[in-house]
Write a protein that binds this DNA or RNA. Structure first.
Ligand SMILES: [Mn+2]
Ligand SMILES: [Mn+2]
Ligand SMILES: [Zn+2]
Ligand SMILES: [Zn+2]
Lengths: 151, 151
DNA sequence: AATTAAATGAAAATTATTTTTATTTATACG
DNA sequence: CGTATAAATAAAAATAATTTTCATTTAATT
């Protein structure tokens, strides 16, 4: 994710193109890892000309609300965010509990008739959450050697 | 969910059968609604012989960890819990954004080859989250009249 | 360049959640 | 049944994530 792409996304959402927003997006989009608001803040607060933590919170929330970034759900009662490079089609993610890596699941992994079933019963579906947790190939391999941090 | 059922569940999990745990389980299991720790606390603190909020947090966490109760994910950065009457087979839920009602989705609504795909690529799957959000039939119906609170 | 709604900073406040430590209790066992 | 003991709980205090407020700045428009 570069500034151009970030700029395009913000334009599309009718949000002002600000250096802070671009910085947050580039930070999250630079690696396939999920981060907390605090972590994003630490990584960018010295660049730009400093940025406040509340601003990071606001930006992350806006972008998540707009669907540009994905909320990652863990049991630790903290919110994590991930900016997927693939903004084209709707899909979900595999999250490595060991190294924080997030990987695409090809298509939306929802079973065929699931949403239809709800709607047929009279309900209206507005969104859905789907997240596969586990340990990624690299972290699973005993002699991985690769760039998989042990957290 | 009555005390007998709660007792059986705790026994199965090798957890001590305490009045507080039974109270929390009966509270959550009395309605198909999700609640926060604080809400559970308010509903039961006068019964039993009072109960501390940290105890409610601990119990909810234990039961969620054990898979007896389900964490409900909302964007409001708070943890919600739901105790499903159907403890038999693995499945997921539809959550009404309007009245907090939680409904069963028949089977696990994950697409067929989803977990296989991850494993075939070398990763290991440990768990998955699947939640459908929307507005339930009752809340969707203009002249519902029924017992669907407007939140 | 002027205008203005939106974005941001800084400090303070809030609130959900956790930790600590002393006390109580469920359960196993003689 | 008493007793022993590990586990559970209370109460108070602490923590840490997140939000609010309000004054100031800035991106976009004219
Ligand atoms: Mn993706
Ligand atoms: Mn259920
Ligand atoms: Zn990994
Ligand atoms: Zn409803």
């Amino acid at each position: 994710m570069n500034r151009e792409q970030g700029r395009d996304i913000l334009k599309r959402l009718n949000m002002k193109v600000t250096p802070k927003r671009l910085e947050v997006m580039c930070c999250l989009g630079s690696e396939p890892l999920y981060l907390s608001a605090d972590e994003v803040w630490h990584r960018i607060k010295d660049r730009v000309d400093s940025i406040g933590l509340p601003t990071v919170y606001r930006i992350l929330d806006e972008l998540a609300e707009a669907g540009v970034i994905t909320r990652i759900f863990l049991a630790d009662r903290k919110q994590y965010y991930f900016l997927c490079a693939n903004q084209d089609h709707h899909h979900h993610h595999f999250v490595c509990e060991s190294c924080r890596r997030v990987e695409d699941l090809g298509q939306c992994a929802l079973g065929e008739g699931t949403l239809d079933a709800v709607q047929r019963s009279g309900g209206r579906v507005t969104s859905h959450i789907l997240q596969i947790n586990g340990v990624c190939a690299t972290c699973s391999t005993p002699r991985g050697g690769a760039a998989c941090r042990t957290k």
